[in-house]
Computed example of a mutant assay.
Amino acid sequence: MYISNEGLLVILFVGLVAGWLAGKIVRGTGFGIIGDILVGIGGALVASFLFPKLGIRIGTGLVSEIIYSAIGAIILLLVVRLLRGRGRF
């Protein structure tokens, strides 16, 4: 799969927004704003590869990408916090 430079920038920008949003939604021990943003970028990358393969579609445009990425970041934050906290949220 080929990702253009512009596509990568969009994924990073959307990941920043989604990480901040996921950090606000998923509260707990916290990673701080920088950690949540990095997890958001990871969630955006996961969502950009995983959701199209699963056939999950919400719509088109930047808003739908932010929603996809926020969902991916929330899932990733929950998994990381679960592993970090040894089984507790």
Rank of each mutant, 00 (worst) to 15 (best):
L45W: 11
A70E: 13
P52Y: 08
A22H: 05
V39F: 05
Y2L: 11
G19L: 09
E6C: 00
G43M: 06
T29G: 13
A73S: 15
V80C: 03
N5S: 13
S69H: 02
F31L: 15
A18L: 07
L78H: 04
W20I: 15
V14M: 12
L78A: 10
L45Y: 11
I11A: 15
I58A: 11
G61Y: 07
I3A: 11
F49A: 13
V79H: 01
G40L: 08
W20E: 08
V17C: 13
Y68W: 02
I75T: 10
F49M: 13
I11E: 11
A18S: 15
T29S: 13
L76A: 08
V80T: 10
R81F: 02
Y2T: 14
V39A: 15
I56L: 14
I67L: 15
R27I: 03
G30R: 14
I37C: 07
L12H: 02
A18M: 12
S64V: 09
L16F: 14
A22V: 08
I37K: 00
L21G: 04
I11T: 15
A22Q: 08
S4Q: 05
I66L: 07
N5R: 08
L78M: 10
K53W: 10
G19I: 07
F49N: 10
L16V: 15
I3W: 13
A47E: 11
G87A: 03
I41H: 04
V79Y: 01
V63G: 08
L62P: 02
R57N: 10
G19D: 06
R86W: 08
E65M: 11
I56Q: 04
S69W: 00
L78Y: 09
L77Y: 02
R81A: 01
L8W: 06
L82I: 07
G43I: 05
E6P: 00
G35A: 05
L21F: 13
L45H: 02
Y2M: 11
G32Y: 00
G30A: 13
G55Q: 11
L12E: 01
Y2R: 12
G30L: 10
F13L: 14
G72P: 06
F13C: 13
S64Q: 06
E65P: 00
I74D: 10
L16M: 15
S4M: 03
V39M: 12
L77T: 11
G72F: 03
R88T: 12
G15S: 06
A70F: 13
P52R: 10
R27G: 11
R81C: 00
L8A: 10
I74E: 04
R27P: 02
L12A: 15
G85R: 09
A18C: 12
S4Y: 04
I58W: 08
T29L: 06
R88G: 04
G28M: 07
G15E: 04
G15K: 03
Y2P: 00
A22T: 07
I25V: 15
A18K: 09
D36Y: 08
F13R: 04
I25R: 05
V14S: 06
I25A: 13
G32T: 00
M1C: 05
L54S: 03
L16N: 06
L78C: 11
I67D: 06
A70D: 06
I74N: 12
I34E: 06
R57F: 06
A18F: 03
V14E: 11
L12W: 02
I11Q: 12
L21H: 02
I41P: 05
I67C: 08
